[in-house]
Amino acid sequence: MQTRDWIRFVLSAIVILAIQVLVINNLNLNQYMFPQLYIILLLTLPINLKHWIGYLLAFALGFVIDSFSYTPGLQSFTAVFIMFLRYAYFNTVVDKEWLSTGIRPNFSTADTGWFVIYVSIFTTVFHTILFLMENFSFSNFGSTLFKIAYSSSLAIFLILLFLFTFNRETANDS
């Protein structure tokens, strides 16, 4: 990522974190819906971004969300973990040639079908880890499952909608 990309990343991070912290976290939709929109920032990082930068970014984003929702460690743990899984995926499954292009996964840069599945799987995994860590035991497992299902489906919808709306035209120059 160049300086221009970094500036754009920081600006979009501020906007998305603000939406997450000020709007979504205060929506009381029902007892199961706590979508985490901010992982959009992690999922659209360049696919060949250096590992240590990725981990530190994930930790920092999780830390910000944690400090606004009084759950120290919860979001940062999950964000760093999802970053680990993302690297594991890109380093093993995707072919090397595509990896070296360093694109940022989006509607315009990747195959639409692949991208939707990519976002869906990582969002679901993220919410699974998040709510398991939040519950911290296997009691009330039913309500945890409901939380995972409701929150991740809403989050997938919001993330795809968000990317579809805002990032389409600007994606060409990345």
């Binding site: 981990y55 994930a58 930790f59 759950t71 120290p72 460690g73 760093v80 690297y87």
Partner: peptide, 26 residues
């Protein structure tokens, strides 16, 4: 980067267990 990953996870788990009353009691 593996060590960094483990360190960050360690910090998070520590914070989770140390500063959240519920997690601490569990």
């Amino acid at each position: 980067h593996y060590f960094l990953f483990l360190i960050l996870q360690g910090i998070s788990i520590f914070a989770l267990v140390r500063f959240n009353t519920y997690h601490q009691s569990v």
